[in-house]
Simulated scan of single mutants.
Amino acid sequence: MTADVVPSEVEQLAGLLGPEPDEVIETMDHHADEQGFPTVGPEVGAWLSVLARTADADRIFEFGSGFGYSAYWFARGMAEDSHVVLTEIDEDELEQAREYFERAGIADRASFEHGDAIKIVERYDGPFDIVLVDNEKQRYREALQAVESKLRPGSLVLADNAITAGVIDRDDVIALLAGESVETATEASRGIAEYLDYVRDHDRLDTALLPAGEGVAVSVVRE
């Protein structure tokens, strides 16, 4: 799935080097493979755990959580008194996420919010230590703008699919980001390019690209 982003050998090494998956993650991976459900995968998952631990994250908010895969990896790197907010428009997927967290005995460290994440975040006070943007690609910038006032200096914003995905053409994103006109670009490709352009020129964010999985744009809020 990600061989066009990083060589398969590097991806294999990353999987061997990262934190050992537990029984819940193995079950999640099996479910994703069986259903053809896109997740960040264990290579990016390991990064989520490491970043959560490095940032000493107490509060994390996700724009789009699916069945809880990325949130679970975050939780593995967080302290017992920390909290992650999962949001998902698909109620069945959100219930699956709750079941996985309950199976791991950490459901009390999470909120499971059904509905539009951009509206849900309005109900939460900041600051958030980490925010994951993984909702509709054409709404990435809208998601970040909705949470900007709830970030602190040092907060991290991670945006998945910054390089590719099924509906994203990497060459189109590059061309759009370079200011070229691409009439055939998909709405998703335009959304990713719009987001990357926004964080690149943002006066409060420093952004770099993590070339793992399908690409993660990592932004940190300046002092």
Rank of each mutant, 00 (worst) to 15 (best):
residue 78 M to H: 13
residue 104 A to S: 09
residue 74 F to I: 04
residue 78 M to C: 09
residue 94 L to P: 01
residue 102 E to V: 06
residue 144 L to S: 01
residue 122 E to K: 14
residue 81 D to R: 13
residue 127 P to R: 03
residue 98 R to I: 09
residue 102 E to F: 11
residue 108 D to W: 12
residue 95 E to C: 01
residue 100 Y to R: 09
residue 94 L to W: 12
residue 95 E to M: 09
residue 121 V to E: 07
residue 103 R to Y: 11
residue 132 L to D: 07
residue 99 E to I: 07
residue 97 A to C: 04
residue 78 M to P: 03
residue 92 D to L: 01
residue 134 D to I: 08
residue 93 E to N: 11
residue 145 Q to G: 01
residue 86 L to M: 09
residue 112 F to Q: 08
residue 122 E to T: 06
residue 80 E to T: 12
residue 144 L to G: 00
residue 75 A to P: 00
residue 138 Q to Y: 13
residue 90 D to G: 03
residue 104 A to I: 08
residue 122 E to S: 03
residue 131 V to T: 05
residue 89 I to W: 06
residue 148 E to M: 06
residue 120 I to R: 05
residue 126 G to C: 05
residue 139 R to L: 12
residue 120 I to A: 05
residue 141 R to C: 00
residue 110 A to C: 11
residue 148 E to D: 08
residue 103 R to F: 07
residue 124 Y to I: 03
residue 76 R to H: 07
residue 106 I to W: 10
residue 85 V to T: 14
residue 134 D to T: 09
residue 136 E to H: 11
residue 114 H to I: 10
residue 109 R to Q: 15
residue 134 D to M: 08
residue 94 L to E: 08
residue 149 S to D: 15
residue 83 H to K: 13
residue 116 D to N: 14
residue 90 D to M: 09
residue 141 R to G: 00
residue 77 G to D: 04
residue 76 R to N: 06
residue 138 Q to M: 09
residue 143 A to K: 03
residue 146 A to N: 06
residue 101 F to T: 03
residue 80 E to S: 11
residue 74 F to H: 14
residue 108 D to Q: 13
residue 130 I to W: 14
residue 102 E to S: 10
residue 87 T to I: 07
residue 121 V to L: 09
residue 94 L to Y: 08
residue 120 I to P: 00
residue 94 L to N: 02
residue 78 M to F: 13
residue 118 I to T: 15
residue 138 Q to S: 12
residue 123 R to E: 15
residue 78 M to L: 10
residue 143 A to T: 06
residue 100 Y to F: 15
residue 98 R to T: 12
residue 75 A to L: 12
residue 76 R to C: 00
